[in-house]
Amino acid sequence: MVTLRTIPFDERLAGKLAKGPGDGVSLHWLGQAGFVIDAHGRRIVIDPYLSDSLAVKYRDTAFSHQRMASAPLTADQLGPVDLVFCTHHHTDHMDGETLNLLASRLPRLNFVVPAASHELAQQRIGVDAGRLIEVDAGDRKRIGNLELHVMRAAHETVERDDNGRHRFLGYGLGFGNVRIFHSGDTISFDGQDKEIKAFAPDLALLPVNGRSEILRTSGFAGNMTLAEAIALCDRCGIGAMIAHHYGMFAFNTITPDEIDNAAEQAPVTLHRARYGIEFRLDDA
């Protein structure tokens, strides 16, 4: 049985990560949908947005992308990284400024990206195709000690490119007996439960910022609400969930109190992604 513990720490995240990955499986939040996962001596980073590139892009517009809180560290402070995942092409998930710095610092680092976005990934990351591991929904791969299951996501729809490849992905990450599901940006959709149940995750990392017609018509696709994310875990038999994709941009978030209050009544173990916390998965 896999259990989830929260371990507070006082030191800066950069200093903690500089020590390198240890034994076992642990996670640290980078903000938005970004996580560092240390698993059995290897470090994986998912959807790191550690720059202010969106604040520059949307400066003086109706939807300011100024950060509500500073990034917990810089791309150069992520320490040793073995693999990077991007769930889709939106900049807060595939940030050129962050990824290019990582690629330059770590010339042997590979990047798992949607095959539908391979050209954009090459351009933003600044690497040749040989450093990209292109995947699509339905793929199953073994990358070192990682078991990878690639699933569909619907950001608010299930979209494919002209070659039928999915633009939005979720990742099932298996580390021995510990299984983590990062949904990417998504709402619930037909067939999603079946895909998730087939992977049987112990922990789900799910967005909870919701969606609105105003944002949709302005070009900003939404995600599950907190209630929908909890219900998804309950239906799929996932015992623990970390709620994320909040607290980054003021126009597209929910409050921490909403998550904390929901945790008291949730049918699953619900945690709010927070800085200064190591989320530790123990395989009893």
Score class of each variant (00 low, 15 high):
160 R>W: 05
101 L>M: 12
202 D>T: 01
108 R>K: 15
131 R>M: 02
192 Q>A: 14
134 E>N: 04
102 L>D: 04
95 D>H: 03
175 F>C: 08
202 D>C: 04
164 G>V: 01
89 H>L: 12
94 M>L: 15
185 D>N: 11
127 V>L: 05
96 G>K: 01
158 V>K: 15
89 H>C: 03
94 M>N: 05
100 N>R: 12
180 I>T: 01
178 V>Y: 13
184 G>R: 02
128 D>W: 09
167 R>S: 10
125 I>W: 09
177 N>G: 13
110 N>C: 10
163 N>W: 12
195 E>I: 00
112 V>K: 11
128 D>C: 06
143 I>W: 12
89 H>D: 05
109 L>C: 07
158 V>S: 07
165 R>D: 09
106 L>E: 06
177 N>C: 11
163 N>M: 08
169 L>W: 05
152 R>S: 11
147 E>Y: 13
135 V>C: 10
83 L>H: 07
78 L>I: 00
92 D>F: 14
118 H>E: 15
165 R>T: 05
173 L>I: 02
111 F>A: 03
136 D>H: 08
152 R>M: 08
109 L>Y: 11
86 C>I: 04
190 D>C: 11
133 I>T: 07
119 E>Q: 10
84 V>Y: 12
76 D>I: 01
135 V>E: 03
154 A>V: 05
98 T>H: 10
170 G>L: 01
79 G>L: 03
118 H>V: 13
109 L>V: 00
191 G>Q: 10
99 L>V: 03
197 K>D: 07
119 E>C: 06
152 R>E: 07
188 S>M: 11
114 P>K: 13
129 A>T: 08
125 I>A: 02
134 E>C: 13
91 T>N: 11
121 A>L: 09
81 V>R: 05
188 S>E: 13
133 I>N: 06
193 D>N: 14
156 E>D: 14
179 R>H: 09
136 D>L: 05
111 F>P: 00
